[in-house]
């Protein structure tokens, strides 16, 4: 009994290691590639680089608009988070903590945004945003990202909101505290881990967004990281792999740092404090 149990748990651990290997090894491999000289990349490679070079990073950091793209990406993502958070918190509170006619219909309606074929909506969106002077503007781009982050964000926050006892709001109501004040001073602080998680969600939705940025941001000065990266990598006939690798590392790095700082909050924030 005991030995078969441990065989199962070792097997399980092996499968987990294999899955994590498939998910993370490409990052390691591209990291190694980014330090190889270009000549080494086209030949058969050894696992350990024979020569280490920084030339790829020099081209990325010094010769491309990398820093501009990073800053632009940050601006769009920050706008997206700032726009989404109030909408998600208000929407989630509305759907999961208040009662009104049409509540179910509206929450279906919000989730239905994911029906719409984004690749095909860009034409009419371009026309509408043109009329609103939102073309070639980070804000316009963030507005699109927000629209696609909010519905699922609302759903993500539900677990946390549901775990709060209704008595918290009732106690505040009996004490004569207004609903709005209750939302700001009781519900939001209580739901802080959930709100951190959805901020992270909105940030990443925006950070990885490609289509709207490509369509709506016309000037090179406004390009975000995904657009810039795609341009330098897939723009040429032959891919310069060393440079592409450095670009990939440079684009993954900010996310990596974000994960180091708040990564462990994500799962906690969407699972109602059930995970210690």
């Amino acid at each position: 009994m005991n030995s078969s149990y441990s065989v199962i748990s070792i097997l399980r651990l092996l499968v987990i290691v294999l899955i994590m290997f498939i998910l993370l090894a490409p990052f390691l491999w591209i990291l190694i590639a980014s330090f190889r000289p270009n000549m080494e990349l086209v030949r058969n490679q050894t696992l350990i680089p024979q020569n280490i070079t920084l030339e790829n990073y020099v081209s990325l950091f010094a010769k491309s608009a990398y820093w501009k793209w990073v800053i632009n990406s940050f601006i769009v993502s920050l706008y997206t988070v700032i726009l989404s958070l109030p909408l998600i918190v208000a929407g989630a509170y509305s759907v999961y903590r208040t009662q009104f006619r049409g509540r179910n219909v509206l929450s279906f309606f919000l989730l239905s945004v994911y029906i719409f074929p984004t690749a095909l909506l860009v034409v009419p969106i371009f026309k509408i945003f043109d009329g609103l002077s939102l073309i070639d503007s980070h804000l316009g781009c963030a507005l699109m990202n927000t629209a696609f982050a909010v519905p699922f964000g609302i759903w993500l926050l539900q677990a946390f909101l549901r775990s709060l006892p209704p008595e918290l709001e009732e106690a505040a109501a009996v004490d004569g505290i207004s609903k709005i004040r209750t939302l700001f001073q009781i519900i939001i602080p209580q739901a802080a881990p959930g709100i951190i998680a959805i901020a992270m969600f909105a940030f990443i939705v925006s950070w990885t967004e490609y289509l709207f940025a490509m369509t709506l941001l016309l000037s090179n000065d406004l390009h975000t990281l995904p657009i810039g990266l795609t341009g330098i990598v897939f723009g040429q006939y032959r891919v310069n792999w060393g440079f592409a690798a450095a670009g990939a590392v440079g684009s993954a790095l900010p996310v990596f740092i974000l994960f180091l700082i708040v990564g462990r909050w994500f799962i906690r924030g969407i699972s109602a404090g059930a995970i210690k």
């Binding site: 987990i16 899955i19 994590m20 998910l23 993370l24 490409p26 990052f27 491999w29 591209i30 590639a33 990443i204 950070w207 990885t208 967004e209 490609y210 990281l225 995904p226 990266l229 795609t230 990598v233 897939f234 891919v239 792999w241 592409a244 690798a245 670009g247 990939a248 684009s251 993954a252 996310v255 990596f256 974000l258 994960f259 990564g263 462990r264 994500f266 799962i267 995970i275």
Partner: peptide, 25 residues
């Protein structure tokens, strides 16, 4: 805890990075 955090990395990087990673692989 490590798995629960870092498993998300592939989701969190731009598609362009994914494309480079796997075209390279």
């Amino acid at each position: 805890n490590f798995v629960r955090t870092w498993i998300l990395l592939p989701w969190a990087v731009p598609a362009a990075v994914t494309a480079i990673l796997w075209r390279w692989m």
